[in-house]
Design a binder for these strands. Structure first.
Length: 114
DNA sequence: TCTATGACTCCGG
DNA sequence: CCCGGAGCCATAG
């Protein structure tokens, strides 16, 4: 139990948003962080995804940085696993980077009705 | 308690 | 878009 009984709010919300990412769509850490009200804490979203490793219900592979680059691929089991997962969902990925990011981008603030 | 680090983002050049 | 630098905040040691 590495988690503390206090302040799991940020992670919980981050997990909640990540879980709501629709199939074949992707979003950025900053978008999630902004939705959480902590646009400056985009890094924490990444941390939350790290914790999400323990939660298979959280598609962390659908979360990329603002450039559409699969920055988290390194933390996955394999090197290209993350890319394979996205391609499997119909997202065109090239060299660990999403081709038409805007096309697959999913904004939580517009879709989750803040 | 303090220091270092990081799945990021923004800003100026 | 690329490059370098700064800001941010939680976790680990």
């Amino acid at each position: 139990m590495t988690e503390k009984p206090k302040d799991v709010n940020f992670f919980t919300k981050a997990h909640n948003v990540a879980m709501q990412i629709p199939y074949g769509m992707v979003t950025s850490y900053g978008a999630i962080a902004k939705y959480l009200g902590a646009a400056k804490s985009a890094r924490m979203v990444g941390w939350a995804m790290n914790a999400a490793h323990n939660n298979a219900a959280i598609p962390a592979h659908r979360v990329v940085n603002r450039k559409g680059l699969l920055t988290g691929k390194f933390h996955f089991d394999g090197t290209n696993l993350m890319q394979q997962l996205l391609e499997n969902e119909g997202v065109e990925v090239k060299n660990h980077q999403i081709v038409d990011l805007e096309k697959y981008f999913w904004n939580p603030q517009e879709n989750l009705d803040l």
